[in-house]
Each structure stands twice: as C-alpha cells, then as structure tokens.
Amino acid sequence: MKRSWFAYPYSLWMVIFTIAPMIFVVYFALTDTSGALSLSNMAAVGQETYLKILWRSLYLALICTVICLLLGYPAAYFLASKDFNKNQTLFVLILLPMWMNFLLRTYAMMSLMENQGIINTLLKAMGLEPVRMIGTEGAVLVGMVYNFLPFMVLPVHTSLKKMDQRVIEAAEDLGANPAQVFRRVTLPLSMPGVISGVTMVFMPAVTTFAISRLLGSGNFMMFGDLIDKQFLELNNWHFGSSLSLIMMALIIISISLLNKADPKGEGSAI
C-alpha cells in the first residue's frame, strides 16, 4: 500500500524553505542591482580581501575538525566499549550542552575567557600571569570545538556501537593483539561514522559566524561573518548571494568527496 501522501507536508516545507530560498540565492548571485544578468558579483568574490577571509574559514574549520576527531574518537570508543554499556551518565554529559542554544553557550565562553574573566581571575588568584584569550584565533577555535564536538562523537559512537562484536572476537581468536584489532578491524569498520562526523563538524565550522564575533571580538572575520555583513549592514544582497553560492559549492564538493569514501552511506547519522 502506497502512503506517499505522508510526505506531502514535508515536501511543501521543503519547497518553501529550501528550494525557494536556493532559487533566490542563485538569482541574486547572478544578477546585478538593475536585475540584469551579470557575473560581476561572482567575479568580485575572487578579490584578495575575500580570498583571505575564505582561506581563514577553511583553515580554522579544518583544524577544528581535526581536534574534534582527536578528542571525539577516543570518547566515542570508550562510550561504546563493553565496560561502559550500562552507565549512561557520561553519554548524557556529552549530549547535555546540546540541550542549550549555542549562542548562550558562546556567551558563557566569552565571560570565561575575558581578560577579567573567570579563568584569568583564577590564574591571578593562584599567583600566575593572566593569559590573553579573548580576541585571539585560539579562542575562536576553542569555541568552535566546544560547540561542534558532539557532532563528531555521536556518529562515531553509533558506528562503533552497531559493529558486530563477533568480528572483533574472531580477530582476537586468530591471534591479533589489541593494537592490531583496532587498526585492522575496529578503525576500518568505524570509518563511515568518522566520515559522517567529519562532515557534520566541518560544514557548520566553515560557515561559523557568531562565534568569531563573540570570542574573536570581531578581529577574525570569517566567511559567515562576511555574508552576514553583506545582507544586514552593507545591503548588498547580490554580492552576499554570490558569496553564499561559492560557499554552497565548496560544501557540495566536500560532501561528494566524502561520499566517495562512504558510498553506502553507512555512517550517516543525519
């Protein structure tokens, strides 16, 4: 029995909130203020100023993804292990920050990292030199990792969890030591989760905008900030759309590269 009409409300939703906006973005990106077809806005993206900002976004997003992977994989591995099967506390702790809006969390990070903030007050109380954190690239990076880490842990955890334990037992029976089991069995089988995690961290990281303003004090403009500025401050929707189009293209390219590595989409947790 076909129940395809179940999907109609969602199709409508998609038409209004995904497809229509995309059409607008493409239309604005390829026209100028008079409404005539023009590639001048697309060409303007290539200016040194904007490439510099794009490069910074890609580079920070990449570092953020690597850190999330290095922190998130071991955590997911531990969470999925047998010793941990019954106790859900840590798992809840990892999810807990996601229950609160990311902007609020970022404001909280700001008051932690300010010159007169909580961390520096503690340092001073212990007789140590205060450290300048707020307004640095490092602060932006910490904020990004903090916000996006759960997106790495969850898919990796899922893929480790649904792994057939008998495969690992078999490897052990055949004489593999723990390191070999991990390298030749667990890691390859968890790759779909890793790929999904990398996608889910990299995409929001590369389009970050509020974090860089709050924790970087506006010193490190990222691609998201640049787009935000075109729409809200400079009233240049055409150039803003061109920037968005480039960003979307970059994301689509990176997703398709990743999909090549995970053709069956086994790790997809979205």
Partner: peptide, 15 residues
C-alpha cells in the same frame, strides 16, 4: 576588538 553592543559591558569590566 571591533564590536558594537558588547563594548560597554567590557569597558565596565575593565577589559
């Protein structure tokens, strides 16, 4: 930093 709304509170805190 380059900010608008946040600056006044930061100045109060001696940032």
């Amino acid at each position: 930093g380059y900010l608008v709304d946040e600056t006044k509170d930061k100045m109060v805190a001696g940032e």
